[in-house]
Design a protein around this nucleic acid. Structure first.
Length: 367
DNA sequence: TAAACGTGGCA
DNA sequence: TTGCCAAGTTT
């Protein structure tokens, strides 16, 4: 064990996070579930989802036996829904092809849906003390500072060097503690902004700290300008308060979730209603709501359509659903759609803005 | 290989 | 307000 790991473990024994839910019982199933949820997602966000999943799906067989729709409904709000779809697929593969036990070989594990190199390493390190490196945002930050690794983290050479360093430092003994320790250090001490180098157990040998250039690492990644997509979302409401939902395609944005019917423009929405024989009694265009994703801005143009009761159109239960909050239906709603419906409940029929630009400003101030 | 994939926290 | 990014993987 090198000095890096020794100092880190010593710090961990006094300062490590011990209260995380997935640290209590380290079955492969629980470690796997937590690792998938934690991909690109902050710890505080994951905790309530993790607890709910464990109650509903106490083991991998329960998860494999569930409907994808229910899994995605429980996943709704976490984001990156391919993780939810892969989670379900992976559970079924584990049950069908591996007798309900997660494989202990890293190559077999990595071949499972949703499990890459880092997640596979974490599962084996935490659940059975196998010596494998991980490379997440924390480890990337700690190592790139400690060794003053230059360059954008996505660059191939940088990526390879960081994996190399991660493998070099990972000890044979106490692998689980070490893996937790380096993530805890990244989350609590070697933070992105204003790291606490005074209380860092590695500061003595940290090249970035020695050079007084901690904020140069990791290097910044190149960003593209986010394009703007403009879409019209139909809030088709019946007198009973039920809202028409449409099943989204199984892949892509919000894949597998339910959302409001979507068209390019509000004008197209009228065509859409005619095509589906929806007798519209009143329509009200709402203020523009801009939602920013990782790669683009979505300008949502909500259009409220109040319709006569019991339309005969839109009857395909696989694709369409009349939904009212409180129904005992498993529905996964994307967060922006959820917010839209919440606002509708809160203020009833929204008023038509007379100035779209003012409306946009107003919306953005609300957020 | 680069782009796609959600959401929320923070400075 | 805006940009960055968090327990990354897939195509």
């Amino acid at each position: 064990m090198d000095g890096f790991a020794r100092n880190l473990l010593h710090w961990f024994d006094g300062h490590g996070r011990t209260q995380l839910p997935w640290r209590r019982e380290r079955s492969a199933y629980r470690v796997w579930l937590s690792e998938i949820m934690l991909q690109q997602t902050q710890v505080a966000t994951v905790i309530p989802y993790y607890e709910r999943f464990l109650v509903r799906f106490p083991d991998v067989r329960a998860l494999a036996a569930a409907q994808l729709n229910e899994v995605l409904a429980l996943w709704a709000g976490l984001g990156y829904y391919a993780r939810g779809r892969n989670l379900h697929r992976c559970a079924q593969v584990v049950v069908r092809a591996h007798g309900g036990e997660f494989p202990r070989e890293i190559d077999v594990l990595t071949a499972l849906p949703g499990i890459g190199r880092s997640t596979a390493g974490a599962i084996l390190a935490f659940s059975c003390e196998q010596r494998h490196p991980i490379l997440d945002g924390n480890v990337r930050r700690v190592l790139s500072r400690y060794h003053a690794v230059e360059g954008p983290p996505t660059a191939r050479a940088v990526e390879g060097r960081l994996w190399e360093l991660a493998a070099l430092h990972t000890p044979a003994a106490r692998v689980a503690d070490y893996t937790q320790a380096i993530m805890d250090l990244g989350a609590m001490v070697c933070t992105r902004a204003r790291p606490h180098c005074r209380s860092c157990p590695l500061a003595m040998d940290c090249r970035a700290h020695h050079d007084g250039a901690v904020d140069r690492y990791p290097g910044s990644r190149a960003r593209r300008q986010a394009p703007v997509r403009s879409r019209c979302f139909l809030i088709v409401r019946r007198d009973s308060g039920h809202i028409l939902l449409e099943a989204r395609p199984p892949t892509g944005l919000w894949g597998g979730l339910w959302s409001l019917p979507e068209t390019d423009t509000c004008a197209a929405a009228e065509t859409w209603c005619a095509a589906h024989a929806l007798p519209v009694r009143r329509s009200t265009s709402w203020e523009v709501m801009r939602h920013t994703f990782s790669h683009f801005h979505l300008d949502m143009h909500p259009l409220l359509l109040e319709i006569e009761t019991s339309p005969q159109a839109v009857m395909d239960a696989d694709r369409w659903l009349w939904y009212k909050d409180g129904d005992a239906i498993e529905v996964g709603l994307p967060a922006p759609v959820r917010r839209l419906l919440d606002r509708l409940d809160a203020q009833g029929s929204p008023e038509t803005p007379d100035d779209p630009h003012r409306a946009l400003r107003k919306t953005r101030q609300d957020r």
